[in-house]
Design a protein around this nucleic acid. Sequence first.
DNA 1: AACGTTCGCAACCGCCCTTCT
DNA 2: TAGAAGGGCGGTTGCGAACGT
Length: 295
Amino acid sequence: MDYHHVKVGLSRGGNYNKNNNHQQQHEKDMDLRRGPWTVEEDFTLINYIAHHGEGRWNSLARCAGLKRTGKSCRLRWLNYLRPDVRRGTITLEEQLVILELHSRWGNRWSKIAQHLPGRTDNEIKNYWRTRVQKHAKQLKCDVKSKQFKDTMRYLWMPRLVERIQAAAANTTNQVTINPNMCMSEVVPIHNNNNAINKPRMSENYSISTAASSENSFGTPVSDLTDCCYNYPPVISNNQQDYFQQSTQLEESLTIPTATGLEFHAAMDQQNMSQWMDGGNFSDNLWNIEDMWFIQ
DNA sequence: AACGTTCGCAACCGCCCTTCT
DNA sequence: TAGAAGGGCGGTTGCGAACGT
């Protein structure tokens, strides 16, 4: 079957098809495209929205002459074509925000995305699944486990903060990282005269996101793995600060232990030895210093 | 160079909620 | 007020590029 050009059948969609017999028949009668969007389709959609605005996606698709479902048009616009969509590597600051907000809200991608200007829920979801879950797999633990959450909170996040501050120190930018940033209030999305909703970071976020799409500080961007490398196996002031700040988090968060290191006791010794026996730590989440730190 | 595997991400699916008629 | 229509969201899939052997 040609995946990119199929007849719409009963198997597609949720209530959309289930409840809409007329629409269903109409769509059965017309060939609807699926799969990757062409340049022409993109152009048509952008043009149409520029003149008529968003909303009413099904009728929009019809009126624009797009042989796509309304859902498909909406998705294409929100995740790709919107002018304020920010593409490129997830920055360190964004990683920090994602980790923190995910610890609060779980897989509420759209809610998390509201705090990352220009990032879509789909992008954040993909980031989480491809990067964070990969590391959880390396650690042989579940991303939902307390062990993994504590690892994020007490190792990765403080070190992200360190890295961000270190990068900031090497630039002329005045950037202050507030490890408690995610205590900020949820900022409502502004609607600018029916224009595109543009989420913005709360003023309480004291991270500058003004620079390039690669990194606010003009430095190379790395992922979670990088944030765990090249750091002394001691609890730095930043980390201590972070522990203190963490204790102020809301009840919904994993409550830190008295030392913030209790999770180490839960670390599976067999897994630990497997990591350490692994040899090539550059390919793993942890380096040897991290192992000493954990032990 | 060829082949197999892994990774990243765009797009789709299907459930659920809200809005409309 | 009920059913239809539209939209939002989290989960999943599949393709192409990158990487490894």
